[in-house]
Design a protein around this nucleic acid. Structure first.
Lengths: 153, 153
DNA sequence: TGACTCATGTCAGAAGTCTGACATACCGTC
DNA sequence: GACGGTATGTCAGACTTCTGACATGAGTCA
């Protein structure tokens, strides 16, 4: 009977549990990636590029859930480090397609293994059916939040 | 058949979906709280204090999923703003119990309503049974990640 | 053709959070 | 009583990300 109507009961709030799970995953991934000298955004960028070569800065930003400004800062560092490449001039419009280099692929291979271990650990207690249910529910939450707020739209 | 074994297939990864949902929630909450001039951590801190008065800086940090250093920075600002109070000397040990002021409670009331609307929107498409399932699965993920990594422990 | 809208890449500044470090206080055991 | 381990509050510095702003290029429509 706590917080009757006025607030949000944290321990049972789906939003709070979502943040808690996300925070735990973030911590675990950070710990797995730290020995490799990588951040989560760094890894996400490389993984995105491996699966969809030629993605633009803005597309990478959306895929990694950061702003395109933040992704641009990262891409400049990755270019200097020789993990990705961007053409000097845009082939079309303003979009600069980003490509993984061999060095980038090698870096990703290590990171991907580390992250894979974390994901497997996270899913250890869930049956295949529960994993499917998790995907379905999480996708549902994303869809529901994608709709604009009543007051805004 | 993408990423056969070597990496993680993002679109079907529970971890990626979790981050996506968390990011969507974060964005929605940011937008809801911005008109009130509050951040998510600010709101989280106040909500935590409303439900469990006398929480310490470190306990608030854990509850809001930030470091105790970050929470301390926030608490100093909230003290200046007159939303919370801390005694000058610790009643016991080094722990300084934090308490909500009337001003803090009023601020929280507005924020809580805004956040509540976001949570309701997020859960709009889920039945009561699905919400229970969501809580159970998310709690399971947290527990699984709480166990130390095999290589570490 | 011209105007309007939208998306992109980029720069600059500010805000939030983090890591590292230190001193202090409790609790267990010896 | 003395010790080591643990947890706390705090300071300092650096990093990452964000918001705000601008110019460029594509697409749409009159």
């Amino acid at each position: 009977m706590s917080q009757a109507g006025s607030g949000i009961d944290l321990p049972t709030s789906v939003g709070y549990l979502l943040k808690q799970a996300s925070s735990a995953l973030r911590t675990a991934m950070d710990e797995a990636l730290r020995p490799l000298g990588m951040t989560i955004t760094h890894y996400s960028c490389l993984e995105l590029l491996a699966q969809r070569p030629g993605l633009s800065n803005s597309e990478l930003a959306r895929g990694a859930f950061v702003t395109r400004q933040s992704m641009n800062v990262l891409l400049q560092a990755l270019e200097r480090a020789g993990e990705v490449t961007r053409p000097d001039v845009a082939p079309s419009g303003r979009v600069l397609p980003v490509t993984l280099t061999d060095r980038g692929r090698r870096t990703l291979a290590q990171a991907s293994a580390a992250v894979r271990a974390v994901e497997l650990r996270m899913l250890a207690g869930l049956s295949d059916r529960e994993q499917q249910e998790a995907r379905r529910i999480l996708a549902g939450l994303v869809d529901a939040l994608a709709a604009p707020a009543p007051t805004t739209g």
